[in-house]
Design a protein around this nucleic acid. Structure first.
Lengths: 171, 171
DNA sequence: CTTGGAAAGTCAACAAGGCTGACATAAACT
DNA sequence: AGTTTATGTCAGCCTTGTTGACTTTCCAAG
């Protein structure tokens, strides 16, 4: 429906710009709807547990980097400690996350998923991976490579800004 | 940093899967960070006006489809009428949106941006387009084509679900 | 022409998850 | 000893989502 111009450019490789405002607008909307789809499955699962996206994010990054400190998590997620703490507290209370006092620096708390937490993580990430896999499969390997490339550019933009602007935080 | 496997597959076109869980996880995280970057500029602009993302979304879709009804907007945005109404009310009060009673069906309200509203829309979409354009430029035309293809797959997933599941709405 | 129901709006109450500010504690650093 | 750092916590505010109940308008079918 929309990638006519883009596909016509394939193989030319020059930056002769097919980037009309309308093309960009479609990209913007695609991001909006795709992101909604992307979070839909986890959202439904979390609802059953009485959790929200904030819990999902915490669980995800604790799983990715076991033993991460609260401060680490804070800067990755870009929220205030009060906000994160609220979430973290319920996760510890519900025995999904284990918060261990640091050995070298006892002020720090190192965060780990409990078996129960790892279970929920698997459930959530499996749903999301299935989505992603289906989209990837339908789009094909070449498209996936391009997808990753563009997303990485968008990520870099934000990382760059965060450090250049002194990281005045998220809205 | 990540598309090694994917690029290796290029040209083979078969679905011999390069889709390891770790590759998928990286895609998932890229979506998270990219989306954050994607909304960062508008969020900053909106803050100055005392608005939030909900206002942005309303403004965007009214601009895209001038004269759209409240119900149309409702189903596109996937929120409750009470939630949308609160946003719409402030936009009308602040003279950014014009709500005209329908001529054929007078129960309907048709929504238009006022010149002032169009001004804010331009400011917001310009920031977002610049982001998108920069990412597209840096990634190149082929990557953009792939990006669009994958996003469209993800959009379709959600559209399909919405109608199959009877559209039980967003969380 | 009456009435049922759809479309839109309003009011009230609530929850999640952001935010700020202030303050407490313990540990580490100087 | 005094300062800084990491964390936690209390209180209060905002946005944006939710339900439920109710009204007004008005189309359309009986």
């Amino acid at each position: 429906m929309a990638d006519r111009n883009a596909t016509n450019m394939k193989g030319r490789g020059e930056s002769l710009l097919f980037l009309t405002d309308d093309q960009l607008r479609r990209g913007i909307e695609a991001m909006f709807f795709a992101y909604r789809g992307f979070t839909a499955d986890p959202d439904r699962i979390l609802q059953d547990y009485g959790y929200g996206r904030a819990h999902h994010r915490a669980i995800h990054f604790i799983n990715r980097t076991p033993g991460t400190t609260v401060n680490n998590l804070l800067s990755i997620l870009g929220v205030t400690k009060q906000s994160l703490n609220r979430v973290l507290r319920t996760l510890v209370e519900d025995d999904l996350v284990d918060s261990r006092v640091g050995t070298r620096d006892k002020r720090e708390r190192h965060l780990f998923l409990t078996p129960k937490g790892a279970g929920l993580e698997r459930e959530l990430s499996e749903a999301q991976r299935n989505r992603m896999r289906d989209a990837y499969r339908a789009a094909g390997p070449e498209a996936v490579a391009g997808f990753r490339t563009v997303l990485e550019q968008m990520m870099n933009q934000e990382m760059r800004r965060q450090y250049l602007d002194g990281g005045d935080g998220p809205r």
